[in-house]
Design a protein around this nucleic acid. Structure first.
Length: 552
RNA sequence: UGGGGUGUCGCCAAGUGGCAAGGCAGCGGGUUUUGAUCCCGCCAUUCGCAGGUUCGAAUCCUGCCACCCCAGCCA
């Protein structure tokens, strides 16, 4: 394990287990149920499980916990595998399925029955709820609790054979209806469900519950540390009860950690679905969505997401991480890796009255990383600059182009504005300026330095592009707490402009390539919509902007 | 108020009896052909509260308080 990694209770525990010889090799697993798309919270779990295995030279399995077929589908299985791989992790061996172990689970259920530790119960859902008691009152024994092992075996075999209707009977563990831990009040092991399963087809009319499956899955796979979230803590005694009572080949151990919560973000499947169904967002991979697919389409690099998950740490205390921390990780990564380019969002023409021939300038792709190379940027007598970068007059704090003043065109010449035209509404329509000779890579010879630097694009060579500006999806830090989530959706979370102009080299941007548009932010060539014929870039994240916060 | 957890800076989070790491955010200043980056500095005499043990306590003990999870044939 590299020493720069922050210590946490998981690493300490694993280190101790390895040192004391409790385990020889760390084996973890990421066990999603394929019933939806993965989101940022899953990214944390993935980073924890795969990351730990990597750091300790162990292995991590990808296992689909597919014990409830009605909610699951192949579509989700595919997307989950794609997301895990995109995040940069590789699972050990083949993808695993809980459903591969159904026969073993069935035999183990018979084992419990024969040992008098499980029984078939005919109580209805409502009756069972009543018999379960409450948080403060003990439950009562089911009238079917004392059926003989022989009768239970017969009934359970009939359940398996498909003799009963959905919900007619269940198999329950015989533990303790008075346990203060409700999970131990004769939990259900199997339910009758005549449902088609995406992996096992129609082979099974009964399906095991999470509790009866998970620990045994871990045991079969030789998982040493079964890491899950805090809400399963109360299930641990049950997890261990099964391992105690069954002839399992291995003894895994469950350890819980606090799930990741991020401010201004919602990860509830119900709400995410609501956003999609209401048309609030364009789909599960809308760049505003906290899904892995959404973050990806937004241009958030996998490495930045992983780094963020590592940075926030892993503990057992409930917390809400400021989403600014995720954004910071994204900016940090992109600052180092994204090539620079220029894009004018709101074009204003500048005529350079003393420029005649067009020339090709060679600009560095990155200000401090020469290995990223250079590119050709055409410079002409007419260039576009952003409307925000010109004022007829301004105070000293304004570091852009002003009539009678100078500014540097990024990577090109210093220019001085002489005059401008207005349209019928009085708006500036065109600026006339001159380049100061010999200022390519040099300060003006007369010693009058420009106030600032602005980005630009050659008017004849620039290409129109669609730019999608994204902002936070919600206006409040904890949207899930709102009665009506849709009412706290940020109406301005997407602003699409079609009149932006990009430098020509950008037309050939590869799908999903992220650039820093200088002085604007990081933008990604849309995974699906971008093409040379119709360039489309999504705002990944803006640059930090002290000026923008202060105003002028 | 049954059981299980958690409380260290605005937000995360190390720390496991010997002078309270780090990151994010924020605030100053410097560099800069991105108002970015980068660099420098500031930012918890105090660890939910109250007692106690100890030469010494965020760390040990006792008692409180607050918040989270559990009563699916979901996971």
């Amino acid at each position: 394990m590299s020493s720069e990694l922050r210590s946490n209770f998981l690493r300490s525990q694993i280190q101790a287990d390895l040192k004391q010889g409790n385990v020889n090799e760390l084996v973890t697993r990421f066990p999603p149920e394929p019933n939806g798309y993965l989101h940022i919270g899953h990214a944390k779990s993935i980073t924890v499980n795969f990351g730990l295995a990597e750091q300790f030279g162990g292995r991590c399995h990808l296992r689909f916990d597919d014990t409830n077929p009605e909610k699951e589908s192949q579509e989700y299985i595919d997307s989950i595998q794609e997301d895990v791989q995109w995040l940069g992790f590789r699972w050990s061996g083949d993808v695993r399925y809980a459903s591969s172990y159904f026969q073993q689970f069935y035999e183990w259920a018979l084992h419990l029955i024969d040992a008098g530790l499980a029984y078939v119960c005919d109580l209805t859902v409502e009756e069972a709820r009543d018999y379960r008691g409450s948080l403060t009152e003990p439950g009562r024994n089911s009238p079917y609790r004392e059926r003989s092992p022989v009768e239970n075996r017969d009934l359970f075999e009939q359940m398996r054979a498909g003799a009963f209707e959905d919900g007619a009977r269940v198999l329950r563990a015989k533990i303790d209806m008075a346990s203060p831990n409700i999970n131990l009040r004769d939990p259900i092991l199997y339910r009758v469900r005549h449902a088609h399963h995406h992996q096992t087809g129609d082979a099974w009319p009964i399906y095991p519950t999470y509790d009866f499956a998970h620990g045994q899955e871990d045991a079969i796979e030789g998982i040493t540390h079964s890491i899950c979230t805090l809400e399963f803590e109360d299930h641990r005694p049950l997890y261990e009860w099964f391992l105690d009572k069954l002839p399992v080949p291995h003894r895994p151990r469950q350890i819980e950690f606090a799930r990741l919560n991020t401010s201004y973000t919602v990860t509830s499947k119900r709400i995410l679905k609501q956003l999609v169904d209401s048309g609030t967002v364009a789909g599960w991979d809308d760049p505003r969505m906290p899904t892995i697919a959404g973050l990806r389409r937004r241009g958030y690099p996998a490495a930045a997401i992983r780094h963020f998950c590592e940075e926030v740490g892993t503990s057992r205390s409930d917390s809400v991480v400021d989403v600014a921390m995720l954004e910071s990780a994204v900016r940090d990564h992109l600052n180092h890796h994204a090539p620079r380019a220029m894009c004018v969002m709101d074009p204003l023409k500048v005529v350079l009255t003393n420029v005649e021939a067009e020339e090709q300038l060679t600009l560095a792709n990155h200000p401090s990383d020469a290995s990223q190379g250079t590119r050709l940027v055409p410079f002409s007598s007419e260039v576009w600059i952003d409307k925000e970068d010109f004022r007829e007059e301004a105070n000293k704090k304004y570091k852009r182009l002003v009539l009678g003043k100078r500014v540097r065109l990024r990577g090109a010449y210093v220019i001085e504005a002489d005059s401008c035209d207005h349209n019928e509404r009085g708006e500036v329509e065109c600026v006339y300026a001159r380049i100061i000779p010999k200022t390519l890579g040099e300060d003006p010879e007369d010693g009058v330095k420009p106030k600032g630097v602005i980005h630009w694009v050659s008017a004849p060579a620039g290409v129109k592009a669609t730019i999608r500006h994204y902002d936070r999806l919600f206006t409040v830090p904890n949207p899930a707490k709102s009665d009506d989530v849709l009412s706290v959706v940020n109406a301005a979370s997407l602003r699409e402009i079609h009149s932006a102009v990009i430098e020509p080299a950008l037309v050939n941007a590869a799908s999903e390539a992220v650039f820093q548009f200088e002085r604007e932010g990081y933008f990604v060539a849309d995974r699906y919509d971008h093409s040379a014929a119709r360039p489309v870039f999504n705002l990944t994240i803006g640059l930090r902007d002290v000026w923008g916060q202060q105003g002028d």
